[in-house]
Design a protein around this nucleic acid. Structure first.
Length: 239
DNA sequence: CCAATATTTAATGTTACTTCA
DNA sequence: GCTGAAGTAACATTAAATATT
């Protein structure tokens, strides 16, 4: 009970009411809710007090009520209702912030997903190429008779990447390797050799054999990171 | 302009909690 | 420590006033 020992406020006590006529007869059986707005002046005072403190001390409440010509109970009720409104605004605001954060994260996630997909396509192509050398035993020399078989000398990778003149001289100077990229963008990429090797090793088991793509922790599933992956938590995907 | 509908807001009712004698 | 009264916050709800369609 909202008891301050007051009986319902005597209507006549609210002299500053906005001038609407007092209800001669209550429309409904229940409370003669005499619901008249407070004056602008009253609201201004109440609002400015609310800015200072959202909960009124009893003494201040009495003082404010006296100043505004209201019942202390009316002031208390106004503060209660005002707190309720303030709280729901707060909740709305928090919701907006949370939603904005979520949307931002979600779009980051989507673009990372796309990037991952692109990299997987690349990886798949690289692995396909690694499998090709078997068919290429006799025919991988160009017209000048240069052997382009990267594995012909010492490597066990059978890497067939060719250095192309289109790669910038700086890139070449720093050991960049060029390969044609026939993905949908049709672009040509330059990768530093270390990155290249890293990618190649991704699909390779300890013994050097290739891991079948389907065992790459479902990386190519296209959906959310797979829970069955080595790491126990899906969010480890991000780290 | 009027009526129907929606929104705002002062007030009530209930429950739970704290303080104090 | 227990008890009851008083005060009050939080919450849901009501109903009148007001705004909007």
């Amino acid at each position: 009970m909202e008891g301050e020992g007051f009986s319902p406020p005597p209507l006549s006590a609210n002299k500053p009411f906005t001038g609407t006529k007092p209800l001669a007869t209550p429309r409904k059986k229940k409370k003669k809710n005499n619901n008249r707005r407070f004056t602008d002046e009253q609201l201004r005072s109440l609002e400015s007090m609310f800015k200072l403190e959202t909960k009124l001390e009893p003494r201040k409440k009495l003082q404010l009520a006296r100043e505004l010509g209201l019942q202390p109970r009316q002031v208390a009720i106004w503060f209660q209702n005002r707190r309720a409104r303030w709280k729901s605004k707060q909740i709305e605001q928090e919701y907006r912030v949370l939603k904005a954060n979520y949307d931002k994260l979600n779009s980051q996630f989507e673009s990372l997903k796309k990037e991952k997909q692109t990299l997987l396509v690349q990886l798949q192509k690289l692995n396909d190429r690694l499998k090709q050398p078997h068919d290429r035993g006799q025919g991988s020399k160009d017209s000048e008779g240069n052997s382009t078989d990267a594995g012909s000398d010492n490597e066990d990778t059978n890497c067939e990447f060719k250095v192309k003149p289109s790669c910038s001289s700086e890139a070449l100077e720093y050991g960049a390797v060029m390969y044609s990229d026939d993905d949908e963008r049709g672009s040509t990429r330059c990768l530093a050799q270390e990155e290249e090797l890293e990618l190649l090793n991704l699909g390779r088991q300890v013994d050097g054999s290739l891991v079948p793509p389907e065992k790459w922790c479902n990386l190519d599933s296209g959906g959310l990171p797979d829970h069955s992956c080595g790491t126990s938590n899906w969010w480890d995907f991000w780290t």
